[in-house]
Structure formats: C-alpha cells, structure tokens
Design a protein around this nucleic acid. Structure first.
Length: 212
DNA sequence: CTCCCGATAT
DNA sequence: ATATCAGGAG
C-alpha cells in the first residue's frame, strides 16, 4: 500500500510558526463564545473584540439577548459587517437556547448546527474552545491549505473535516485548527502565498504552481 | 450560486 | 477609489 503522506514536517512547521496558537476571541462563557464566533464571520477577531465588551455588558446571557431590541443589537455589532443577518441570528439563536436548551449552549454538534446562524465551522469553534471537545474547524483558510497541501481531495467542508480528523491525532485537532487558520491568513494566503519563505515548500504539491 | 456589509489593504 | 476578505441561509 502506498504510504501515507508524512505529516510530521507540516505539523512541526506550524508549531514553530504558532507555538501559542489559541482562540483570540474574548469571552467569559460558552454563550459569549458562540455570539463572538457568529460575529467573527467575515470579520477579524480583533474587530469582534472591540464590540463584544459593550454588547455583553448590555446583554450578558441568552435571556437578555433574546429580549433585546433587534435595533440595539444591530447598532452594537454594526462594525463587524453583515450586521442585520448577525443581529437576527444572535437574537433568534438566543431564543432557541432558552426554549430548547434551558438557556444553555449545547455541547454537541447535532444541537449546535440546528441553531439559527450556526454551521459546522462555528459549532467546532465553540466545541473545541468552550467545551474541549476535539474537532477540526474548516473555514476558507483551512479549506485552501488542505487542498493545496494535498491533505484532502474534497471541496465540501464537511468532507474535508472528516479527512483531517483521519490524518491528524485527535489531541491536536483544536490546536491545529488555530494554527491552520493563522497559517492561511498570514502565510499561505489566497492570492500571493509566501512560497519563497515556506519551509515545507518541498512537500507542497501546489507549491510549484503558486510561486512565480 | 447569490446575498448579506463594514474594515482594511492597496 | 476600489479590491479583497470569507460563514451561513435561501
């Protein structure tokens, strides 16, 4: 049988680049992390952290968020973009939490993805960081890197998630998720990846096509 | 596949 | 001034 791709250099390089990779969203509990993660779509964590202190000081939990006037939420989260969708999702998600989960954020994938505005990416962030349930977060960065580096041949994020879980040790999933996102954001970027400085260029199937 | 939107980079 | 960024719902 053909040997599996050697992932050691890849994991070691990520560890070298991001030894302290962790969730950069600020939050006090699972509910706040869930809200912050919804806000983080198409928005930097830094920008999210600018609005959440005030948002949570006004509406700290599912109960108060569910009763908050939608216009107030919109105003508080405005700078994170897509604010109308996000405000609606945060409010109805909070409502669902109260009526279907006793006001608590569920700690399993099936329940999380049923919440308004919550997909697998958001669910995995909450599971990994708030509940320490290992999982692979597949956002656009992780997807791009997985395809470039030959970690998967799939384009469907859920399939990629399965593939990554097969090839990486379970106890590294959450850390790797953070490292992959950072690697994609700052090094292996969509447009002009820094192939010239990449230490694993030699192992990268896409490398020679990307470098100019 | 399109729409939702502001912030940041260029 | 304009391009780019990049989850989830319909």
């Amino acid at each position: 049988m053909g040997g599996k791709k050697d992932l050691a250099p890849f994991m070691e390089y990520l560890k070298e680049l991001f030894p302290e990779a962790h969730c950069e969203l600020t939050y006090n509990d699972p509910f706040q992390l869930l809200v912050a993660t919804i806000l983080s779509a198409q928005c930097t964590d830094k920008q999210v952290n600018k609005v959440t202190p005030l948002l949570f000081s006004e509406y700290a939990d599912a109960e108060s968020m569910a009763e908050a006037p939608i216009e107030k939420i919109e105003k508080l989260i405005h700078s994170t973009g897509f604010y109308k969708n996000k405000a609606k999702n945060i409010k109805s998600m909070s409502h669902a939490l109260i009526h279907e989960h006793n006001g608590k954020v569920p700690d399993n994938m099936e329940s999380l993805v049923k919440l308004p505005g919550v997909g697998r990416k958001t669910a995995n962030v909450v599971l990994g960081n708030a509940f320490k349930v290992p999982g692979m977060v597949v956002d656009t960065h992780v997807k791009r890197i997985s395809n470039r580096y030959g970690l998967t041949k799939n384009s469907d994020p859920e399939k990629i998630e399965q593939d990554l879980m097969k090839i990486f040790p379970r106890d590294r999933w959450t850390e790797l998720s953070h490292q992959l996102v950072l690697f994609g954001r700052y090094f292996c970027t969509a447009k002009k990846p820094n192939c010239n400085e990449c230490k694993i260029f030699a192992y990268c199937p896409a490398g020679n096509k990307l470098v100019k």
